[in-house]
Design a binder for these strands. Structure first.
Lengths: 332, 332
DNA sequence: TAGTATGATGTAAGCGCTTTCATTTATAGC
DNA sequence: GCTATAAATGAAAGCGCTTACATCATACTA
């Protein structure tokens, strides 16, 4: 492997000049530049990124911690981040936190130990306090889908309240007035906000909210099934169901089918997230689009702007959901 | 940030001794070790991984190139790799190649430029020659789901022929004798092998193979739909369908439904891959399990053994598929 | 012509750590 | 007590590159 010394000898210039040409960060005459480039070419020179990182005190890497590496949601996010960072010549180091506090902290510490220039975190279990302290330390942090007021500028979020509102509004506009709701775990802010949006739409359309038509799930499809069974066991009439995410909607739909309910003719269902599975279940799920790929890209742009001084980038912290109409909801 | 110099001063020992304690790679007396550990603790010492990498000529990173970062298949693989590498203290750098030759090469070059100690590649478009040359170079390469005879030891593959055989055998054992087949793109070895397994099972059970009941798709669900439509347009009788992957099976199932065919009563369908979506479509898909998470783990173990000398690990290059019976196939 | 400013390049130190070889210390055997 | 061997530690060089300050060359102005 050729080193910068060999290039400088062959080109007949100093190390500093080779470095200047390589990094394009200072004036070098055209003639000298060409000599250096020719020498690099001849030697097949490839810079040692590790030496560059040590000398410049910058690793050119971005650490990403997500709950899981498998699953449609996180893949989209990773893809958005990697794509954006790679285009800017930065590499992406991944770790999984498994939504457990100790594991999330372990993953974060691991990434810190790799001298990542910044962290992009999608974490659930660690406390706000931990994250506030972390962000006050040496390494810049961007949070996806986690809102902390003290770190507002570092948070990239979806307007979940609006998403819950849109999901419910669609059914209300289709004439439904008796709506059931399967919530995510209510300690999570996204579950809470989505529910708040549901309540707002109900109030706005003068639909009577019935607490007996509310059930709390855990965002897994099995809890959607269980909640749906609970709701049906109460034998209260409802013609539509809003689920706080697509997986629970899939589970609920399965139980509806088992109980002989026609979807959407007898029961309209709306989910949230627009996961890829929404297109495979039958009938295809009407849902709320969660632009997680785009949010990942925005997180990467945040890093590029704040850490690497790419000032041309405009940032956006709050993303809007959008209704995706498919086949699981129809007019009453 | 404390450096090794500060630790050595506080502990009253040399740099070399601090390094020996830190890396546990040479004899150090218990008393000296304790002095060093106490000094590290007091200073909150955290080694600079970049300096370690430069001095040791080892980056402790593994580069992974996959076709796409989103999608259920790749997430499982990434998860398996990251989990295993992380447990061994190595970090994982990801890149996406988008199944295009130029993009795959660009991604590989990017990972090489990061001085990754090894590459784990799931690539489709680059040629065997390119990979053979790459593996002959300075950086060790493991291939997942790509078999190259010259690099047999570096390849981690599924026995696709057996998978195709098992998929078809299931239907034949259920009494079906008129089977249609939707293949993946036949320039791909996995598509070819799965089809070969199908033919073997057909021959073994004395079922007549009819070329008119064969259609070639591209592994996307839309091509599954198109092929199914083609097959139905021929108005030839068949009671069962084998699809070379789950996504095409989902597409085919959708068309069958639109054409009024009851699945599985009138048409049994078997897929391949056991993607998560197989559990969400209705009826739940009978399919062939592809242990991609385990294969990712094995690729990581290959790297740990060959590059980092973890000799306790046993390796396995060929994985066996398994039939997963759900609801989309029944006895004729 | 001399002084000043600008453009271009070189020199030297250092980033934080590893590791080889040299030196010192401790132990065992005669 | 002396010698040889083993254990333990230290000194020094270097990994490949960046960058601040020094130096040189050239152009312009008074």
């Amino acid at each position: 492997m050729a080193t910068i010394y060999q290039v400088s000898e062959l080109a007949g210039v100093s190390l500093a000049t080779v470095s200047r040409v390589m990094n394009n960060n200072a004036r070098v005459s055209e003639a000298t530049r060409n000599k250096v480039l020719a020498a690099m070419d001849q030697l097949g020179y490839r810079p040692n990124s590790i030496a560059q990182s040590l000398a410049s005190n910058r690793s050119n890497s971005v650490g990403i911690l997500v709950s899981e590496l498998h699953g449609p949601f996180y893949g989209e996010m990773l893809s958005g981040i990697e794509n954006e960072c790679r285009a800017a010549g930065k590499h992406v180091i991944i770790a999984a936190g498994h939504s457990e506090e100790a594991s999330e902290i372990d993953g974060i510490e691991f990434l810190i130990s790799r001298s990542c220039d910044a962290l992009i975190l999608h974490v659930e279990a660690v406390s706000d306090d931990y994250l506030i302290k972390l962000a006050a330390g040496n390494i810049p942090v961007v949070l996806i889908n986690r809102y902390i007021p003290q770190l507002a500028d570092n948070c990239i979020c979806l307007n979940n309240e609006l998403g819950g509102y849109l999901a419910t509004k669609q059914l209300l506009q289709q004439g439904h007035r008796q709506l059931a709701y399967i919530a995510g775990p209510m300690w999570k802010s996204d579950a809470k906000d989505r529910y708040a949006g549901h309540l707002r739409a109900m109030a706005e359309y003068g639909a009577t909210f019935n607490p007996a038509l509310f059930a709390e799930g855990d965002f897994q499809d099995s809890s959607g099934s269980a909640c749906m069974q609970q709701l049906l066991d109460k034998k209260l009439p409802f013609t539509a169901l809003v689920c706080a995410n697509d997986e629970m909607a899939a589970g609920a739909m399965e139980v509806a089918r088992q109980q002989g309910l026609q979807v959407p003719e007898q029961l309209s269902i709306v989910g949230f997230d627009n996961l890829i599975l929404a297109r495979y279940i039958h009938p295809k799920l009407t849902t709320i689009d969660y632009p997680i790929g785009e949010m990942g890209r925005m997180a990467a742009r945040w890093v590029l702007k704040h850490i690497y001084q790419q000032q041309t980038l405009t940032l956006k912290n709050v993303f809007e959901p959008a209704l995706v109409c498919r086949e699981s909801a129809c007019a009453r």
